[in-house]
Nucleic acid binder design. Sequence first.
DNA 1: CTGTATTTAATACGACTGTACCCGGAAAGC
DNA 2: GCTTTCCGGGTACAGTCGTATTAAATACAG
Lengths: 213, 213
Amino acid sequence: MRDTGGVPKVVDHDERRRHVTAALLRITEREGLEAVSVRTVAAEAGCSVGAVQRYFSTKDEMLHFALRTVVEAERERIRHIRLGPAGMPFPDALRATLLELLPLDARREGEARIWAAFYARAAVHPEFAAVIDELNREARGNLRAAFAYAESVGELRPGQDHDALAQLVLTIMDGLMWSILMRPGGVHRDHLAAVDTAVRLVTGSASSPAPPS
Amino acid sequence: MRDTGGVPKVVDHDERRRHVTAALLRITEREGLEAVSVRTVAAEAGCSVGAVQRYFSTKDEMLHFALRTVVEAERERIRHIRLGPAGMPFPDALRATLLELLPLDARREGEARIWAAFYARAAVHPEFAAVIDELNREARGNLRAAFAYAESVGELRPGQDHDALAQLVLTIMDGLMWSILMRPGGVHRDHLAAVDTAVRLVTGSASSPAPPS
DNA sequence: CTGTATTTAATACGACTGTACCCGGAAAGC
DNA sequence: GCTTTCCGGGTACAGTCGTATTAAATACAG
């Protein structure tokens, strides 16, 4: 089919799909997933509904592609969990990693708002939940491996359940994300204090890390 | 108005509003807030659209009433945070309280699903977030007071930031709720382990002391 | 009974939804 | 030139949405 006859106007399909998806995510960040319709996405992308329909035959397919895009971005961030910068004490490295996962500036807050929208939809749509759950499992594995490594080099007090610890840390991260998104002013000192407490809980260090007040 | 002239068919307005709201919440639990429309609510409540419109002149008002209903139910549950049963060791009382807040059976899972739906909507609608934030503030206050009392009677290691501690515990509860809702099988051992770890973190019980540092 | 006031069912309306379809424009091979 | 293929704007269609309006049914005072 592709090789016979003339080759008409050729267009990078993947690029177009990403373009439309970016428009969808902008709408989601601004007004939530409920504001996403084929028409609003087309308007945001600066094209017609027919163009959107060409690359996403149905709205569900479009949403699934957007979900996979968001999950992929999150997966990329999670990959950096493995290790903090070498030569850094483990508590500091862990703290830095966790702070990087939190929506502490406007850009990451926008991303978190998108993430939360899909996250909430997963509470009703099991096929969304499956994708997200797999990502969470991956994150837990990375964190657990980091704990195991830290223990092996003597930077982490031995004898702890790394899996439960990783799950707890990720749970705290989830809760913190929602808490930050819910507060109008953004991040508060309690949020940072919670990260410090989580790090202290894992590493078992005794002193408090001087919160700026 | 009410005293003049004849008094025709009289119905309990509040009862009707609660009836309609209950139908709305059933739909929300089953299919999420996006499935809530005036028509679906009327059908679930077993009446016509006009009847719903009589008691809720607009859909927003209906949703707001439902939100306040849900928040009120949650407020009733967090009122029990103040103190566990007297004569119970503080760690056990705290653990029991936290376990009661978690959706560990089908009934509470349904309630949590409703709660999560409104929670997610609050991430986009600030007027929802304000109500929920106030409730969270209240819960934090109760928890903080419980910590202060426990410290005063010598059941809690002194010198901790009760407010930050309470915020952290509530954050863990939020994260756990989402985690439980997301997993298909319901509650896992990691969730209960997270509660134990949180209790241990707060009470500083002796199972994990002595950092070499 | 009549009269009056309230509840409710039914419907109408305009806007929006997802999807299917059509047709003109654009590039490449003949 | 023409043909072939893809692309994308425009539109039609059957629903559902929230809301306003209408008319019938109902229950009590007189």
